[in-house]
Computed example of a mutant assay.
Amino acid sequence: MPHVLVRDVPEDVHAALQRKAERRHQSLQQYLAAELRHLAEQRSISEVLDEVEAQYGGRVGLQEAVTDLDDERSRR
């Protein structure tokens, strides 16, 4: 399994992470590995938008989007 080394972590940040790990009854390494996994699994807004664009294509201007949204809300 690959290793990750992070240098120059401020003491207060290290202490906060250590406390969080202790609250979960985990070592700092276990806690950070879980958090990194969670971070890696999250998609960014740009990734989501790229996926939507790839599936549906096209672009809508801001004003058209606002108008369409207003129209949709008025129908309810």
Rank of each mutant, 00 (worst) to 15 (best):
K20E: 12
A15V: 07
L32S: 01
A65E: 02
E72G: 08
Y31T: 00
L49M: 15
V4F: 09
Y56T: 07
Q29G: 14
D70P: 01
L28E: 00
E47A: 04
G61L: 04
E72Y: 15
L62V: 02
Q55N: 10
V48S: 06
T67S: 10
L62Q: 01
E72V: 12
S27A: 06
E53A: 13
H25F: 05
M1I: 04
L5K: 15
A16M: 11
H38S: 09
L28Y: 04
A34T: 03
Q29A: 15
E72S: 11
E35V: 07
Q30D: 06
D70G: 09
P2A: 12
P10R: 15
V60H: 02
L49N: 05
E47M: 07
Q18G: 07
E35D: 09
D68A: 14
V13A: 11
H14F: 14
D50S: 08
Y56K: 05
Q30A: 09
E35H: 10
R37T: 10
T67N: 13
I45W: 15
E64M: 03
D68Y: 08
E51V: 03
R37E: 11
D68G: 14
Y56P: 00
D71R: 10
E41R: 12
M1L: 06
E72F: 15
Q29K: 09
L69P: 02
A15F: 05
V52A: 05
A34L: 14
Q42T: 09
Q26N: 01
E64G: 01
V9A: 07
A65D: 00
H3D: 10
V60P: 00
D50A: 13
R75H: 13
A15T: 12
E64D: 13
M1T: 05
H38A: 14
Q63M: 04
R23N: 06
S44F: 06
R19I: 08
E22W: 03
E22D: 14
D68H: 11
T67E: 13
M1R: 09
S27G: 06
S74C: 04
R7W: 03
E11S: 14
V66N: 02
S27C: 07
V6H: 05
S44H: 00
A65N: 07
E22L: 14
S27Y: 03
V9N: 06
R23S: 07
H38E: 14
L62F: 05
R7G: 04
E35K: 11
R43T: 07
V52L: 15
R19G: 02
L5G: 01
A15L: 13
A16V: 03
L49I: 14
V48H: 01
V48F: 02
A33Y: 06
V13P: 01
D8R: 06
D68Q: 13
K20I: 01
V48T: 10
Y56M: 07
A54Y: 10
V52P: 02
A40N: 11
L69A: 13
A65T: 03
Y56L: 09
K20C: 10
Y56W: 12
